[in-house]
């Protein structure tokens, strides 16, 4: 039965960046589809910890196993022990979702090298660290699904977005290179290109938000759960032959000139 192929029952997932709107929706959707789901923050900020805990509560409310961890996604030690804990507590690691979301916006002449490095360390190096840590359990299982979530900044430029644009474009092509490297090991690596979504970190400004509502082809932003559907497909047995792809879920925003 075709719909059964989407079920994630018996699978386990780790979502990093689950305090953000998109990461949280992905974690909940994976749990709804039947997976046990561990979640982690992008940084150790207190409000992220609260959000990650509340995300874990939603996972438990669905009768799935899981835990919430407060980590700095740029820390090699944090990421390594997080992945080991997820594999140990959930029994295996089938799905890794990298939804790292450290927002940052500044004119480039005002960006200090330390700020630039921090954006790269979290949003790009953090994804590398997580993929590298997940390689051990996934390669030994002979299967795995890595799903990196980027935004339109990976593909199009944005004023004051130079650091984020560079980091996310990096994640996008890291996805393709890793997909090739692991193509014969049973691990698929794909990216989701999320369009402008309610609750996104870089959408603090009300004026931009109103303009997007007016100019987007469908005249509305995405709801976070609308980004999560493709994550479930990518994580499932149905997507065994899908690898190295960046799939955009952006309401047609990339269709216009």
């Amino acid at each position: 039965m075709v719909l059964d192929q989407f079920s994630l029952r018996g699978k386990t997932a780790l979502v990093i960046g689950a305090a953000g709107a998109v990461g949280r929706a992905a974690a909940v959707a994976l749990a709804e589809a039947g997976a046990d789901v561990a979640v982690a923050t992008t940084t150790r900020a207190a409000k992220e910890e609260v959000a990650a805990n509340s995300c874990a509560n939603e996972v438990w409310a669905l009768d799935r196993k899981g835990f919430a961890a407060s980590i700095d996604a740029a820390s090699e030690a944090d990421v390594q022990s997080l992945v080991e804990r997820a594999a140990a507590e959930l029994g295996r690691l089938d799905v890794l979702v990298n939804a790292h979301d450290l927002p940052f916006a500044k004119p480039i002449q005002e960006v200090s090298p330390d700020e630039w490095r921090r954006v790269m360390d979290v949003n790009l190096t953090g994804v590398f660290l997580a993929c590298r840590a997940a390689a051990a359990p996934m390669l030994s299982q002979g299967s795995g699904r890595i799903i990196n979530i980027v935004s339109l900044l990976a593909e199009r430029g944005m004023v004051n977005g130079s650091a984020l644009c560079a980091a996310q474009a990096g994640v996008m092509n890291l996805t393709r290179a890793l997909a090739l490297e692991w193509a014969r090991s049973g691990i698929t690596v794909n990216a989701v290109g999320a369009g402008w979504t309610e609750g996104m970190g870089i959408l603090a400004d009300e004026d931009s938000r109103r303009k997007l509502d007016r100019y987007l082809p469908g005249k509305r932003l995405a709801r976070p759960e609308e980004i999560a559907g493709i994550v479930v497909y990518m994580a499932s047995d149905a997507a065994e032959y899908l690898t190295g792809q960046v799939v955009w879920i952006e309401g047609g925003a990339l269709s216009h000139v």
Binding site: V2, Q5, R176, L180, A183, G195, P217, G218, I227, Q245
Partner: peptide, 30 residues
């Protein structure tokens, strides 16, 4: 293998996907 992908694109689960491509091809394009 095209079946579930097609169901996804035909369903409410892809409600915000528009004008986009889903390539199922084993990594060749990467």
């Amino acid at each position: 293998e095209l079946g579930p992908l097609c169901v996804f694109l035909a369903s409410d689960l892809s409600s915000y996907m528009n004008g986009d491509i889903l390539a199922l091809e084993g990594g060749g394009l990467a």
